[in-house]
């Protein structure tokens, strides 16, 4: 074993020396190798040495915005004739829009999406509207005389008719909704007596709006608008005339069917008369209960009870009965 070791030792005289002296030897030897030959690079693929320079895209120089060339007194309707989304170079206004940090100015109109998002009415300036009105004037007839104010035209045309036309990009130009006709009128424009009014309201049902006092008919059961309009007018006419008809069975309308309490129809009147005419003989003039009392009984029942109505009732009863 020990002879083996010595052999190895002898083969490496240089290294043995170095280990003994404790000095690195590589640094002395390496420069000698470099001098001998250049470091060769392994070139697996043939690579073109010079880079191909990227081709520059040739851009036209940015033209200055159109607004610079606009005259102060130009015809704006010609510059912006139709609805269009916002275009900064065409609008000679120093607009700014959009959110920024505090203190900074809002972004200018150029490349500003905020301004393009919102609808604009630059095509509907007053001169533009005036111009268009002038243009279509030749197609219009003069405004009828005697309908100058709203009150006047409402008196002459109490029925309001509402229809809707639809424009759409379907293969057909018909729209089902276009046949719908709505007519409405104020109930006060119709002339009724008490019975007829009551009956009309019952016939009309929930088509009457108590708050606005309007009756509204909506018809859409016929295929054509004309037919629906005719039908609505027929309904109105029929209901109106029917309300004046008194059927024989209407006489049997009982107190439970009444919408409001009427003193005249009720037991209260009989009782009050009975008390007031207690000692009257046959043939004497009957004293009828005072109207103030009748009114406050009606109020008590129609408006519902509260301290005020009840106190009023008490006063009237005391006055009537002399207590």
């Amino acid at each position: 074993m020990s002879t083996g070791l010595t052999r190895v030792w002898e083969r490496l005289p240089l290294k043995k020396q170095a280990a003994q002296s404790g000095i690195r030897v590589f640094s002395q030897q390496q420069p000698e190798i470099e001098d001998e030959e250049e470091f060769r690079v392994l070139n697996l693929r043939t690579v073109k040495q010079q880079f191909q320079r990227r081709r520059e895209v040739r851009r036209d120089p940015v033209t200055p915005p159109r607004t610079n060339r606009m005259a102060v007194d130009q015809d704006w309707t010609a510059a912006w004739p139709a609805p269009r989304s916002f275009h900064p170079a065409s609008v000679p206004l120093p607009l700014r829009q959009g959110f920024t940090e505090r203190g900074a100015a809002a972004p200018s109109k150029f490349a500003n999406a905020e301004l393009m998002k919102i609808p604009n009415f630059l095509h509907l300036t007053p001169p533009a509207i005036r111009q268009q009105c002038e243009a279509i004037k030749k197609f219009c007839s003069p405004w009828p005389k005697g309908l100058e104010t709203e009150a006047k035209w409402q008196r002459h045309f109490p029925v309001e008719v509402i229809t809707t036309d639809y424009l759409q990009s379907l293969p057909t130009i018909r729209n089902l909704e276009a046949r719908r006709v709505t007519i409405s009128l104020k109930l006060s424009d119709l002339k009724f007596d008490a019975h007829a009014r009551d009956k009309f309201l019952r016939l009309v049902g929930d088509r009457y709006n108590k708050d606005t006092d309007t009756v509204t008919f909506v018809t859409d059961r016929c295929p054509l608008r004309k037919q629906n309009y005719d039908y609505a007018m027929y309904l109105l006419t029929a209901c109106y005339h029917e309300s004046f008809v008194t059927e024989p069975w209407e006489a049997s309308k009982s107190e439970a069917d009444m919408e409001v309490y009427l003193f005249e129809r009720n037991q209260s009147k009989i009782a009050a008369e009975g008390i007031l005419n207690w000692s009257a003989k046959e043939g004497d003039n009957k004293i009828s209960p005072p109207p103030a009392y009748a009114q406050c009984v009606e109020q008590l029942i129609n408006e519902g009870e509260n301290e005020y109505n009840l106190a009023k009732y008490k006063e009237e009863v005391k006055k009537m009965l002399n207590v």
Binding site: A272, L310, Y313, V317, K318, M320, L321
Partner: peptide
Amino acid sequence: GFEHLDPFVPVH
């Protein structure tokens, strides 16, 4: 009841 008693004097 109201019709039976009317006219009466309510006393609160």
